[in-house]
Design a protein around this nucleic acid. Structure first.
Length: 553
RNA sequence: UGCCCGAUAGUAUAAAGGUAGUACAACGGUUUUUGGUACCGUUUGUCUAGGUUCGAAUCCUGGUCGGGCAACCA
């Protein structure tokens, strides 16, 4: 409990600000644009912002940064809220930048009145041409010296809808020769005759990000406005507006965004995968979205733990997927009931176990749980399904499983010895014939025999069928973003493998959407949302560590 | 070419001028009715060249490398 985790740089700033009395209450915000689904990168920002106020007191607002009506939708607002709640966080106020459109308009008027903003009639191309380059200063627009009265009049008429899209824009009169390109008279309002998901057709001019974000922070008295590194150069402008508008001085701090190996994180690319049908939707279990991870079987705890472990810093990073997988295994190991499922079946026939005889075995559900998770009944008979890969005609060295003459334990049941096997015309093994040792029954073993291997099984007569979807990384390379060519050139063709008919023990027939299971020796699985009682579908969240698979290489 | 940000094991992240630590990964072992878990151990690091200092990952200077900035996107 008393882990002395050192502070990250943002926590240091906050502790100093609180200690010095600069602020009494910490107020942060999480400000997504509702133009897509939230992903694991957002989870990092969510855990940071909400985690900070959880730790130091104060509160966190949820603010939808909805200043661009053409990309935003209510569908996204809803999904984003669901995902934040699912992660386990509660916001103080649900707010929208669009709530501030009137105030923002007034701010713009104030800037014009102070001679710090002007209407520019230039085209986008002309503005770009006069902007200069990083090494050469920009040139003043011919409209820069317009009178305040004319600017006021034109701005009012922009708002009134007198001009078509692109005819004019409002720019801040900052510094056309600033070494910071962002300061070269940034555009702050543009004309867009578009319907907004909240304000409808009330507006036809919309503020740009730079003219909305800092002011919104200020209105909400956000003390620490935390964003990612690409906004570093915007900070100068952020402060400039606050200073000239003479409003509450929120401060912006930047941290490095999360990059995860074997996936992509930009909304644009994720949207592309969805639109082009590469994946089945935003919640495809292979997606790094919160909804995808949820459907995949990740728990909120494991994602929060992951965000905790990756840390907060300012250097670019690429986190290994194996850390995320470690976090989910660690949690699932504690909470998932163990069950048996055979994914690639062959028959095991116990020749000395009377045909037609059955017995019910007891299996503890989770050896990691305090009460072992309780016990469940497992039906046993003379004919079982076992995993094809658990039998080897010619055993490799250090092979612990079934092979001619070899003995193994059937989990929760008896020790069996392989006597013979049957192959089909193609040479594939179809049946393994064994004898069992009656006095080796699990829990009451008096046989004195020790076996190296234990394998899982399902009684053929009692087995239920299920579809099993096994997922793997979406891309074949660690960083699809930084490879040559299109990122889609590196898609993993085997990112999903569907087994239509696997056999599962009857206990699983009642599995519900919230349950997590460990299929013994295979991995962690959950019920997919498409599953029905008639057609059960399980998704593999993550496989178990497999020392044997490694040893084979 | 200008400005800004950054650089510590394979990957992340600590060490606020004083023993370079932790986690994941990798490797080896013990335990085990999951080749899982748990536990133990091993390997691997301060970008570079100078300077300040009794002492530098830390401060200073130069260089190198990586990233960002020229959307009527956020």
């Amino acid at each position: 409990m008393s882990e002395e985790r050192s502070l990250n740089f943002i926590e240091e700033i906050i502790e100093n600000d609180l200690k010095s009395g600069k602020y009494e209450t910490l107020i942060t915000r999480f400000p997504p644009e509702p133009n897509g689904y939230l992903h694991i990168g957002h989870a990092k920002a969510i855990c940071l912002n909400f985690g900070l106020t959880k730790k130091y007191g104060g509160y966190t607002n949820l603010r939808f940064d909805d200043t661009n009506p053409v990309t935003e939708k209510t569908e996204y607002v809803d999904s984003q809220q669901e995902d934040i709640k699912w992660l386990g966080f509660e916001w103080k106020n649900e707010l929208y930048t669009s709530d501030y459109f009137d105030t923002l308009y007034d701010f713009a008027v104030k800037l014009i009145e102070k001679g710090l903003a002007y209407i520019d009639d230039s085209t986008a191309e002309e503005i770009a041409a006069l902007k200069g380059t990083p090494t050469e200063p920009g040139t003043d627009s011919p409209f820069r010296s317009r009178s305040i009265a004319e600017n006021l009049d034109l701005f009012a008429r922009m708002k009134a809808g007198e001009f078509p899209d692109g005819a004019r824009i409002l720019r801040a009169k900052a510094d056309m020769s600033s070494p910071n390109m962002i300061m070269r008279d940034p555009i702050i309002y543009r004309i867009k005759h578009a319907e907004h998901h909240r304000t409808g057709n009330k507006w036809c001019i919309y503020p740009m990000y730079d003219f909305a974000h800092g002011q919104s922070d200020s209105i909400e008295q956000i003390t620490h406005s935390i964003c990612t590194l690409e906004y570093v150069s915007h900070r100068e402008l952020y402060d400039w507006f606050i200073e000239h508008l003479e409003i509450f001085p929120s401060k912006q701090y930047e941290f490095a965004r999360l990059n995860l190996s074997y996936t992509v994180m930009s909304k644009r690319k994720l949207l592309q995968l969805v639109n082009e049908g590469v994946v089945t939707g935003w919640d495809d279990p292979r997606m790094p979205t919160i909804s995808g991870l949820r459907r995949r079987g990740y728990t909120p705890d494991s994602i929060r733990e992951f965000c905790e472990r990756i840390g907060i810093a300012k250097r670019e990073n690429l986190i290994e997927l194996s850390l995320l997988e470690f976090c989910v295994r660690e949690h699932l190991n504690k909470i998932a009931n163990r069950v048996m499922a055979v994914l690639d079946p062959i028959k095991l026939i116990i020749t000395n176990y009377p045909e037609g005889q059955e017995e019910t075995l007891n299996g503890e559900n989770n050896p990691e749980a305090e009460d072992k998770g309780g016990i469940r009944a497992i039906p046993f008979s003379n004919e079982l399904w076992i995993e094809r890969e658990d039998f080897m005609e010619e055993p490799a060295k250090k092979w612990f499983r079934l092979a001619p003459g070899a003995t193994v334990r059937l989990k929760h049941a008896y020790i069996v010895q392989c006597e013979s096997f049957v192959k089909d015309a193609e040479g594939n093994v179809t049946e393994v014939h064994c004898t069992y040792i009656p006095e080796s029954k699990s829990g009451e073993d008096t046989s004195g025999i020790n076996v190296k291997g234990t394998i899982h099984w399902v009684s053929t007569k009692h087995a239920k069928k299920a579809e099993i979807r096994t997922y793997d990384r979406l891309f074949t390379v660690e960083s699809p973003d930084s490879e040559e060519g299109d990122f889609k050139d590196y898609l993993n063709p085997d990112s999903v493998d569907v087994i239509k008919e696997a056999y599962i023990e009857p206990y699983l027939a009642n599995a519900d959407l919230d349950s997590r299971y460990q299929f013994i020796r295979k991995g962690y699985y959950c019920v997919d949302k498409d599953s029905t009682p008639e057609h059960l579908i399980f998704n593999r969240t993550v496989g178990l560590k497999d020392a044997w698979a490694k040893a084979k290489k």
